[in-house]
Computed example of a mutant assay.
Amino acid sequence: MIEDILPPGIRFAEAFDDAGAPDWFPEEEAAVARAVAKRRGEFATVRRLARTALGELGVPRMPLLPGRRGAPQWPAGIVGSMTHCAGYRGAVATRGTEFVSVGIDAEPHEALPEGVLDVVARPEELEHLAAWPARGAGVSADRLLFSAKESVFKTWYPLTGRELGTEEASITFTCETAVSGSFTARLLVPGPVVGGRRADLFTGRWTARRGLLLTAVALPAVRISAHTAYDGPARLPAC
């Protein structure tokens, strides 16, 4: 499922449950020793998936421990991202010579809890989503916005080492079909410097399938300009 929104060159693995025995290192098990069973299962599964993706890059098995703010610590020379929600676990990895950062997020395809959208969304985002045709086609626009901001944050954080508030990026969506398309995040704070130039736009893709919403952002190590990141598909009208 996630391969539909990833650019070429990024390895991935995904699962829709935590079936099977945990495949983890003692250090990983210790990191969640006090967690509830659900959290332990998610943690173990996404790391198994991450090692599958890393294996396709020729990277040997190794522990993938959480670092500051829980972000996974990837092997040297590798960038990646993990995500999990009810009914989905996924991991992606690629070499830093191909992409400087990636971020993925999965969410259940349902409305956000009451009050969350007011915290997450900027006024212009609310206006954009209110008129977005895909909303009328059944896409949970508020949850999609939340997911896109999560993917943007996961891409941003490894490059900057600092938080990115939900109000510090403004996102607009386009669509290719009623259930898939692209999005652009305009950073409202100075973006990370990549290849000697500042990246002030992050672009990504989204899809809505199987009761899930998935989003992904990837910043390539080449073709970075002062105003572009991963170009994705050709820009389309807002469905």
Rank of each mutant, 00 (worst) to 15 (best):
T172H: 08
V152Q: 04
L159V: 02
P158H: 14
A185M: 03
T174S: 01
A185V: 00
E176H: 10
T177R: 09
L144T: 15
G136E: 15
T184C: 13
R135C: 14
D142P: 11
K154S: 00
A169V: 11
V139R: 01
V139H: 05
A141T: 03
L145H: 03
G181N: 11
S151K: 08
E167K: 09
F153L: 15
G161M: 09
S180L: 02
T177P: 01
V152A: 10
D142L: 03
C175A: 09
T160A: 11
G181Y: 02
W156Q: 09
V139E: 00
T177M: 05
T166D: 05
W132R: 01
G165R: 13
S151A: 13
T174H: 01
T155S: 05
E176D: 15
G138E: 14
W156E: 07
E167L: 13
E167Q: 12
E167A: 09
R135P: 13
Y157L: 10
K154M: 06
P133S: 04
F153Q: 04
A148H: 09
P133T: 01
V152E: 12
S140T: 15
T160H: 03
E163Y: 05
P133Q: 13
L164S: 12
L144I: 12
T155F: 10
L159E: 11
S151L: 13
T160R: 02
V152N: 03
G136Q: 14
F146Y: 08
T184D: 10
K154I: 08
W156T: 05
A178V: 12
T172I: 04
A169D: 11
E150H: 06
W132Y: 13
S151P: 08
G165V: 05
F146S: 01
S147M: 13
K149I: 01
T184E: 15
V179M: 04
T160W: 00
F153T: 03
G161S: 10
R143P: 06
S182M: 09
L164P: 03
E176G: 09
A137H: 04
K154V: 10
S182F: 08
A141S: 03
L144R: 15
E168I: 10
G138F: 08
G138V: 14
F153V: 03
G165Q: 07
V152M: 07
T160C: 05
P133A: 08
L164T: 06
L145A: 09
V179L: 05
K149T: 07
T172L: 02
S151W: 03
L145M: 14
T184H: 05
A178W: 04
L164N: 11
R162W: 14
T174D: 06
R162K: 08
A185R: 02
V179R: 10
E167Y: 12
L144W: 06
L144V: 14
F173E: 01
A185G: 00
W132I: 00
G136L: 10
S170Y: 13
S182D: 14
E176Q: 06
L145V: 15
P133H: 11
K154L: 02
